[in-house]
Amino acid sequence: MISVTNICKSFHGKEVLKGVSLDILEGETLAIIGRSGSGKSVLMKHIIGLLQPDSGTVTVDGININNVSYAELRSIRQHFGVLFQGGALFDSMNAFDNVAFPLRTFTSMSEKEVSNVVKNCLDMVELPDVGKKLPSELSGGMQKRVALARAVALRPRYVLYDEPTSGLDPETSNTIDELIQSLADQLNVTSIVITHDMHSVLNVADKAAFVHEGRMQWTGTIPELHASEDRILKRFVKANEYLIGV
């Protein structure tokens, strides 16, 4: 379980997070939604300890990650898989080596075992034949799928998705959504999806948390989202041109 308690964060005097609290339960898929610049990605970076809050705490399985050594933090991070907004694949490596990278770095697997796991992961994201291609030879959607394969290669307990469908066409977005769902089912992972794409939220999430101007404006299940009377949340949903319930 991940608990975010009252975290505040400022950059150069500008408050980005103003006391955000959130609980993410084991096995659930939570979507963190909000407008661009509302602090979603900053919140995600706090969850894996890439940023330190000015105040407040983040606990992962009961361990306050803001109060541990760098070595301990790194070992906690190995329970996470992260899909970054642009994929963040290593340019100098082909798709196979990108997926193999965490396996070669953190496990003592033989090259044959690594190869089998990589093939499974690439099959899982429906890209079995791209192993030899460099990231620059892949489309945006394919890069995200390879990055997803890399994120789950070590079978993490938590997977974080930062804007997984941004910049993708609707069909590819659907494919990514289906992958998120199937990975959550197959691997029984806890998923945190940062997005402003309501279509994606309704496709994949069990719960949603709405961040507005650095504050946690609303949290609830998807049926509760449909019924919510929160004015700001309703405006955000409407702006997504999605009519809930229709």
């Binding site: 970076k45 890439l50 906690i76 991070r77 970054f84 963040a88 990278f101």
Partner: peptide, 18 residues
């Protein structure tokens, strides 16, 4: 610099690598 702006350094850190 390119690794930093394309979040590749964040990706390394997020994996648990120094």
């Amino acid at each position: 610099g390119t690794m930093r702006v394309t979040e590749q350094i964040d990706a390394l850190e997020a994996m648990g690598l120094n």
